[in-house]
Design a binder for these strands. Sequence first.
DNA 1: CTGGTGTGTTTTGCATATTAAACATCATTA
DNA 2: TAATGATGTTTAATATGCAAAACACACCAG
Lengths: 262, 262
Amino acid sequence: MAKATNHDVYFVPGLHRGLKVLEILGAAETPMSLSEIARAMGLSRSSAFRLVYTLRQMEFIREAEQANAFTLGARVLNLGFAYLNQQPIAEIARPILASLRDETGVSTHLSVLEGDDVLYLVSHQARSGYVSNMRTGTRTQAYASAIGWCLLGAKDDNTLAVFAQRQSWHPFTEHTPTDPDSLTARVKQARDDGFVISRGFREPGGSSVAVPVRNNSGAIIACVNLSGPDSGFDFDRMESFYLPKTQEAALHISRALGYQGS
Amino acid sequence: MAKATNHDVYFVPGLHRGLKVLEILGAAETPMSLSEIARAMGLSRSSAFRLVYTLRQMEFIREAEQANAFTLGARVLNLGFAYLNQQPIAEIARPILASLRDETGVSTHLSVLEGDDVLYLVSHQARSGYVSNMRTGTRTQAYASAIGWCLLGAKDDNTLAVFAQRQSWHPFTEHTPTDPDSLTARVKQARDDGFVISRGFREPGGSSVAVPVRNNSGAIIACVNLSGPDSGFDFDRMESFYLPKTQEAALHISRALGYQGS
DNA sequence: CTGGTGTGTTTTGCATATTAAACATCATTA
DNA sequence: TAATGATGTTTAATATGCAAAACACACCAG
């Protein structure tokens, strides 16, 4: 009996668990000992030993200063950046968003939908004041931010409904949608307008402008956004200045991807 | 017979090969089919099939638009950035190097020695003109650049000699050291001066200022550098302006790491 | 010193992953 | 159409990874 999950016949558990070790070490605040890893994985120490042994030999993990404790090694960086360099959109967007940051003075980002999350691919921090905690590689729940609504516009109504069903709603601020209906309303609004301007939706006191990026067939594949504290935005110029600048950048990127519209 | 490498008893090949698949996909220009992966790995298709199956199920790889071809998935990004976020020096240096970039107008970087390579941890591009190809995650040979000489100052003479022995010397420019002696001379010079100013050493027409970052015990653990095309640097002000600014930033970072000196 | 509890490491019988080989598709070519 | 060669997939015999248990060493408390 037992037989727990009955993993597919083709599954290679050694690989699965090794990658999980990497993720656990990635999430850890401090280096972990072999035993800690074994416990966190729900594995025997002997199995963990073999995984750690292999990973260390491959230099994907390394011992920390304190002996018998392990951290991620630099080799995982290569993987992460190999991924980034393979996303042509990131290459294209980087200089455009840098200019946008310089023109507007607030932080600029490019993000895509990855599963149910918003994933930040490019991020340029405002040159002064407030530092956003959104950096390349950051993930946030898509349902809870202007960027998310903008990106979710890519989904058709049915897919969107299914997406909404599986969310666990957490009210980040008083404006966060907390049920499928209010979310779909937001998304449809974003789709109709072609942009989202938000004020304190994701974080109290934080505002943002989001505009979709489209590919050659006109589908939404990414989202450009400005974000910053209310104090950094001149709210009166939101529609007259920040929005058009952002739209211009988004269009610039879309064109570079073969988008024919305007 | 055969028995090829007689891998250690504790080695788990499934993990080893899975990670190798990720690296191969990371290095690939375009998505790869199952068979291509198998060939690149020197494996049977059936084995590659199981690795790909597992990686795909874990979302470390995904099928490209073209069916039956695979690319890295977004989940590898998490690993890479988890590593970065675990390097406190990167967190500390980021805003300092952003200011340095803004004050000097040229690109700024923080790098560490990783094995025999220089690894860039933080990178802020100049806001105009020339865009350097050194970004976070980039690796370069340590022996061939000002940053490298600066970082190699951390090694004692014996270790440095051993390091020098195993390099394969490639003359990137006419100034690149091509033998152990000229390298060690460079490194000792850097150690004595406490900085390196270079002109066209790594790339023709590219200049750079590099200053070491020290930890609480005074050891060199990283290196701050400015880099840009000669046209971006005002060479007359190299020692009067760029160098002191860089030293100031490096000291700032060193202090934040507990360095007591000056 | 003794017993206890924590390590990391090694062993070994059993369960399971692995791969050669067969199979099923799909193109292309004769 | 049949032959060919490439692909992705499945199978089954065998090679191998796995975890329980034993081991060795450390640390700490009494």
